[in-house]
Simulated assay, not measured.
Amino acid sequence: MKVARIAYKGSIHIVTEKDGKLAMPDGQMLEEDQVVWLPPVNPGSTVVALGLNYADHAKELDFSPPKDPLIFLKGPNTFIGHRGETKRPITAKYMHYECELAVVIGRRARHVSRKNAHDYIAGYTIANDYAIRDYLENYYRPNLRVKNRDTCTPLGPWLVDASDIEDPCNLTLRTYINGNQTQEGHTRNMIFTPDYLIEYLSSFMTLNPGDIILTGTPEGLENTAIGDEVMTEIEGIGRLKSTIIADQPLTEEQPLSSSMRRS
Rank of each mutant, 00 (worst) to 15 (best):
G81L: 14
P65T: 12
H111L: 14
L22Y: 11
C99D: 00
M24C: 06
L73C: 04
Y124E: 00
K115W: 11
K115P: 02
P69N: 13
H118W: 10
R88N: 06
A55N: 08
R107H: 12
Y124P: 00
K93A: 07
G123K: 00
R107L: 11
F72G: 04
L61T: 14
P69R: 10
A23N: 09
L50V: 05
P43I: 04
G51P: 04
A55C: 08
I121N: 03
A58Q: 06
V41I: 15
G84P: 12
H57M: 07
V47R: 01
I132Q: 02
E100I: 00
M95L: 13
L52M: 15
A23G: 08
T125D: 01
V48Q: 02
A58P: 07
V47C: 09
P25M: 12
F63L: 03
K67G: 15
H111W: 12
L73D: 02
R83A: 12
I71K: 07
Y97S: 03
M29G: 03
R83D: 11
F72T: 04
K115D: 11
G84K: 12
T86P: 06
P65D: 05
P43Y: 10
E85G: 09
E98D: 09
V47T: 15
G123S: 03
G123P: 02
D33V: 03
A109K: 07
L61Y: 13
Y97W: 10
A92M: 06
H96S: 07
F79K: 06
R107N: 10
N77K: 10
I132K: 03
E31G: 15
C99I: 01
N42R: 14
D129I: 00
P66H: 10
L70R: 08
S113W: 08
D119L: 11
R114T: 07
A23M: 11
D62E: 08
T125L: 02
I126S: 00
F79C: 02
P76H: 11
Y120C: 06
P39I: 03
K93M: 07
P65R: 14
E98R: 06
L70G: 03
D26A: 05
D19I: 04
Y54E: 06
E85R: 15
H57Q: 13
V48D: 02
K67S: 14
V41K: 00
K74V: 02
A122R: 15
W37A: 01
I71R: 09
F63D: 04
Q28G: 05
D62F: 09
C99K: 00
V103K: 00
R83V: 03
